[in-house]
């Protein structure tokens, strides 16, 4: 009896996996057929040549370093930029969410700056910081700043009033309320903001690495490969960019599911 149930579960899991794979596999087949029909590796390379690039991630490409090296460079930049953005956004969001005066004061600025895409800052970043890490960190920090800020604000505002009042009647100081009630209470929403913010930061880093004068990173690698008509490297680089983004999002989501289960179960 129990064994049949287990077997059925396993069967269901395999079936789900197969269904998940249907479209990607069809996509790859379509790609390969298209590549054969087009028969021009400078437009659409065959699967095999992209796979060959992916299979040698430690081999230097056109003298710009390997896939792994460039990926690590991009990751380092995104981590620094994201850390700066989040480190500014979270305290500001908590302050705005907690004290209406701060909100009133800061909200107009936030509203004005938020709609400007991070990439629209590129020329200004170059004018201020020249080409280099600072410019990129600036762009990435800007990109992650707003989603983290708005979610923090939202999370702080959604902290139940009685959670705060219970702490007050138990003798909490304002600092204790912030540290022990508001921050943990808002953390699930802040975390969501960090996930969104990191996604945007990752997009920003690739774009920022296409700025003139850059000489490393995945964004640079794929742009550089274009200049040498190495389309298989472009596509391999894009795949790596996608996989890293996906992996980070999955990791953050896993933490969310484990640590913040209470948010769903509380209702």
């Amino acid at each position: 009896m129990k064994e049949t149930v287990q077997r059925r579960r396993r069967y269901q899991r395999v079936a789900r996996g197969l269904r998940w794979a249907v479209m990607p596999v069809l996509f790859l087949i379509a790609w390969e057929i298209a590549a054969i029909v087009i028969n021009n590796q400078f437009v659409l390379p065959r699967l095999e040549s992209v796979a060959a690039v992916l299979a040698t991630p430690f081999t230097s490409i056109l003298g710009t370093g390997s896939l792994v090296e460039n990926a690590l460079v991009s990751l380092e930049r995104v981590l620094i930029g994201f850390a700066v953005g989040a480190a500014l956004a979270i305290p500001l969001g908590v302050a705005m969410g907690r004290w209406p005066r701060v909100d009133e004061l800061m909200d107009p600025l936030v509203q004005i700056f938020r709609p400007i895409p991070p990439l629209a800052w590129v020329p200004l970043a170059l004018a201020w910081f020249r080409i280099g890490l600072t410019s990129m960190v600036f762009i990435i920090a800007l990109g992650s700043f707003f989603p983290v800020l708005l979610n923090t604000l939202d999370g702080v505002r959604s902290v139940k009033r009685t959670w705060i009042e219970a702490a007050m009647t138990l003798g909490a100081t304002e600092r204790q309320i912030l540290a022990k009630v508001i921050l943990p209470g808002a953390l699930p929403t802040i975390w969501t903001g960090m996930r969104v913010g990191f996604g945007i930061a990752w997009m920003c880093v690739v774009a920022a690495e296409m700025m003139p004068g850059t000489n490393s990173g995945l964004g640079y690698l794929i742009l550089y490969s274009y200049n040498f008509s190495q389309v298989q490297v472009i596509i391999a680089g894009m795949i790596v960019i996608g996989l890293i983004g996906l992996g980070i999002d999955l990791g953050l989501r896993r933490v969310e599911e484990r640590r913040f289960r209470w948010r769903e179960l509380e209702r």
């Binding site: 139940k160 009685t162 219970a166 209470g185 953390l187």
Partner: peptide, 11 residues
């Protein structure tokens, strides 16, 4: 003080 909604900290 004890509140109607318990007001326990779910975390």
């Amino acid at each position: 003080m004890i509140f109607q909604d318990y007001s326990l900290y779910p975390w």
